[in-house]
Design a protein around this nucleic acid. Sequence first.
RNA 1: GGCCCCAUCGUCUAACGGUUAGGACAUCACCCUCUCAAGGUGGGAAUACGGAUUCGAAUUCCGUUGGGGUCACCA
Length: 475
Amino acid sequence: MNETRVRYAPSPTGDPHIGNLRSAIFNWLFAKKENGKFILRIEDTDQSRIVKNGIEKQQEALLWLGMQWDELYIQSERKSIYAKYSQKLIEEDKAYRCYATEEELDELRQKQKSEKKITRYDGRYRDYDKEKSLSRSKKEPYVIRFKSPQNGETQCFDKIRGGITFNNKELDDFVIIKSDGFPTYHFANVVDDHLMKISHVMRAEEWLPSLPKHVNIYNALGWEMPTFVHLPMILAPDKTKLSKRHGATSVQDFIDQGYIKPAMFNFLVLLGWAFDDKTEQFTINELKNIFDINKISKSPAIFNKEKLDWFNGKYIREINTNELAKEISIFFENSIEPNNFNIISSYDFKKIANMVKERSKTLNDSLILSEFLFKKPKFESKEEIITMCESDDQCKLVLEKSFKLLSDTKDFSISNLQNKLKKLMDDLNLKPKQVLGTLRIVITNQKISPPIFDCLNILEKEESLIRIQTAIDYL
RNA sequence: GGCCCCAUCGUCUAACGGUUAGGACAUCACCCUCUCAAGGUGGGAAUACGGAUUCGAAUUCCGUUGGGGUCACCA
């Protein structure tokens, strides 16, 4: 049996897209499952679209999810290889130089459009004199086009869809080498997949229409074909291709919004793949063993953000405290002003993690819940404070008694605070809302906050008393 | 528009000819409750349509409709 070798082949033209990352996950998991190799190939043959740090961004996205590649190739460094094979095709009369200019081609397309014909290259240099072609190549720019078969059919095979037949009349002589000498995707991808001994080409379904082009190149070069696996598209809720106008689409967007690695990985793997009828939470290690390309679905999947949120919240609740504390500290540092981060750093991030984990869907939620740590309550009116009570006097009573109680309390553990304050409620014959609600306002002044016991616990005695006293003074 | 792919609750999906069509997210109701969550219990919700094959079809075949993708010297 041949070794399983798969590749993830992004082009470094922007921020890594979440849909591409899903393709990477499928490839990587399949490689792990089969004890094969996961190859990263940078498809940077369009010099005009290259973005600074494009390669690094792609690598960082993979590493964020813990996907390490076994081999790395960069197409722009392999220019001569593609030239060699294109030359071979010319010599064998399976490709030819085309001298048509952009303007010429535009004109052709316009004409075809106005005549309501299909727009495609008309093969004007297909049978051009070989001597002339060669001599012109010495002084004029040209592209190299592939001589597509004009009759018959091209049989293709996709692992999850089966056989697909294309009528060769639909094909045109597409460009394989551009005038700047770089190969087009269609050509570089075939040459590289062959040379790199790729066993399975797993890529997005949007490539399916160009499969016959690739198949014909394989045939022309006399190469054996890999298994093609076209992955279902990931669509936006409006059922169109997921793009920037739908909001977050790049990997960095999701990191910035506070999504964490295991949730992202788990969520993405379920877009177009399922294990069985009830299991849906998996660790990455489990997936390495159970991932099965035969279970990849055919139909496109809509990106269901609510479910991602749920997964993220679930993982935030379940990962261990140290890990969450680390995620939180990194996220906070990147999200808030240095001054505020300094204040919040004086608290124990593990304590913060425990305080917010039950009620955070994202790390950004964690941040919002923690804001009271560096934002002291500021009141606009007395009403804000007394809203939980029946009267000013009752509110004052609650605050004064609480102040006294907490002053006398040494043990600020959550359980002890619960006991003490419960007793206070009983003694004063007041409802939880009146006592705990009022304290929550005075301590955090947040509509949504962690439970008051957690807040007092993390703030500790001194700061808690200061905040209560401040409110009493204000009343 | 040509070509290609696809079609199970709103969404992600399970089912590999025989199930009361299962699970999850979301949603609704109730419980819990210091806010918000989490958690618990329960409810509603799907095989696009029409033929054919078969004792029997979500499942196979054909058509219709719908959706998506793709038609560059971008990938």
